[in-house]
Design a protein around this nucleic acid. Structure first.
Length: 201
DNA sequence: CACCAGGCAAGTA
DNA sequence: TACTTGCATGGT
């Protein structure tokens, strides 16, 4: 935090925008997601009802810049389906659900895995859940803080069992790990088996 | 030209 | 359980 300052995640106005962004950013750059979300906003489709009603192929066309557009259009539809059927399309109601129950509901949606679910919980609903992603895993692995066998849960437990459960702190912590990972731990060939590099500039 | 980016599900052994 | 593969655009 001293080196990089606050990262201002998640760059979204509403919990719906976080949900959409969380799906769209799967294995893709945020740059492409921004374009896709701009397209959705420009078409006036960034609402639960509009997303529910829009044709899947039309939706796919709009989110094209974020990659895997056919797949992600379906995944967005699946997520909206949950919001409609379980909460009548009301995200406020969804936000009142108990964290563990909500996490399981999200994971039950086809196309929503642990990182997407946890991103929605932390960044969309302000729950103290630590998000694990490629960068988190890479930084911890390079510094030999985790073994090769560590799965998502194990990594998440490492953070959540040793830190106070504070959503705004988790928010910055995760965003800063991504920032550090991008800066110092790029998977370039010369760094494949390199000695550990310092984290701080 | 090759490689990578804020994953996930489905298939195979 | 532990790999492997498809999904796709856009930037370096």
């Amino acid at each position: 935090m001293e080196a990089y300052g606050p990262q201002h995640w998640w760059p979204a106005d509403t919990s719906l925008e976080v949900m959409v962004g969380a799906v769209l950013t799967q294995n893709t750059t945020w740059r492409g997601v921004e374009k896709a979300i701009t397209n959705l906003k420009g078409s006036g489709l960034l609402s639960v009802d509009k997303l529910y009603g829009v044709d899947t192929d039309k939706l796919a066309g709009l989110i094209r810049p974020s990659g895997y557009f056919n797949l992600k259009a379906r995944r967005l539809k699946n997520l909206i389906e949950l919001v409609i059927t379980s909460y009548g399309g009301n995200l406020e109601d969804m936000g009142r659900k108990q964290t563990n129950k909500l996490r399981k509901e999200l994971l039950a949606v086809k196309g929503v895995g642990p990182e997407t679910a946890d991103s929605i919980l932390l960044y969309g609903f302000n729950r103290p859940i630590f998000v694990i992603d490629t960068y988190t895993r890479r930084v911890l692995s390079r510094h030999e803080l985790i073994g090769h066998s560590a799965n998502y849960q194990k990594l998440q437990d490492l953070f959540m069992q040793h830190l106070p459960l504070n959503a705004s702190m988790f928010n910055e912590y995760h965003a800063l790990l991504v920032r550090v990972g991008k800066h110092h731990c790029k998977p370039r060939p010369s760094c494949r088996d390199c000695p550990l590099e310092p984290l701080m500039p």
